[in-house]
């Protein structure tokens, strides 16, 4: 995922600073990069061409008005039933395997960082906590993770630190690092964090592309009453 991200950033840079010698050389020498740039450039032009879009709609309207599509179903009843069943099977198959959103899409739609709200300062000093809070609140998860790592090292038993550290990892797309901390929270006596930890474990699986594990985890969440139950049901509906 990160590789792709870098690729698009590079293309953006190329389009904005086409004169940059290194990128210009890459464009000339790397056929695949040149293809990507041309596709990207074409997309920009095509999508910004509102007049062409309006013309296409106008053509569609006129075509429908003057030459509506014929309904030519003249199949015998049995054939019609067979065709309907086949169509239904194909549609269901497509819905199941192709139309379903990817784990990335589901993650993007459902991941929201947990609200900040802990007051237990433990042994850490206020300024480090403030720094961690500040970065977390601003969704600068890379810096937030660093700060919470520091706090977690100072006070390993503070499950709030572990919990927010895990969410910062997820927000920074490093879910594999998040999972052990969330499991630790879940096994601790900090019961107010159990439900959210279960939810964020599901999010971590989604972000990591572990579809089956995410589904299993979400199914577990649907079984008990919590504020995440409805969210899990909703997410599974989109599966």
């Amino acid at each position: 995922m990160m590789e792709e991200k870098d690729k698009y950033d590079e293309i953006e840079a190329f389009l904005q600073q086409g004169e940059h010698a290194e990128l210009k050389r890459k464009f000339q020498e790397d056929e695949s990069f040149a293809k990507d740039v041309n596709l990207y450039k074409g997309l920009k032009i095509a999508i910004n061409d509102k007049k062409a879009m309006a013309m296409e709609s106008l053509f569609d309207e006129v075509e429908k008005e003057l030459f509506p599509k014929k309904k030519t179903l003249r199949l015998r009843p049995l054939l019609l039933v067979a065709a309907t069943v086949a169509l239904l099977v194909v549609t269901l198959y497509n819905l199941q395997w192709f139309a379903a959103p990817s784990t990335e899409e589901l993650f993007a739609n459902y991941f929201e960082p947990y609200k900040l709200g802990f007051v237990d300062r433990g042994e850490a000093n206020d300024s480090v906590i403030e720094e961690a809070n500040y970065h977390y609140a601003n969704q600068n998860f890379e810096e937030a993770a660093k700060a919470f790592e520091g706090l977690s090292t100072i006070d390993k038993t503070n499950q709030y630190y572990n919990f927010y550290l895990a969410i910062s990892y997820i927000g920074n797309l490093e879910s594999t690092k998040a999972l052990p901390f969330l499991k630790e929270v879940l096994n601790s006596e900090q019961s107010d964090l159990h439900d959210p930890a279960e939810w964020y474990i599901a999010m971590a699986f989604l972000q990591d592309g572990q579809k089956d594990s995410a589904r299993e985890q979400l199914m577990e969440i649907t079984k008990k009453s919590s504020k995440f139950q409805q969210l899990a049901i909703q997410l599974l509906d989109e599966w």
Binding site: G42, L43, I45, A46, I47, D49, A52, M53, E56
Partner: peptide, 10 residues
Amino acid sequence: SQYRLFRKKF
């Protein structure tokens, strides 16, 4: 033709 395809997919 390319642009039209891009818009269609969009």
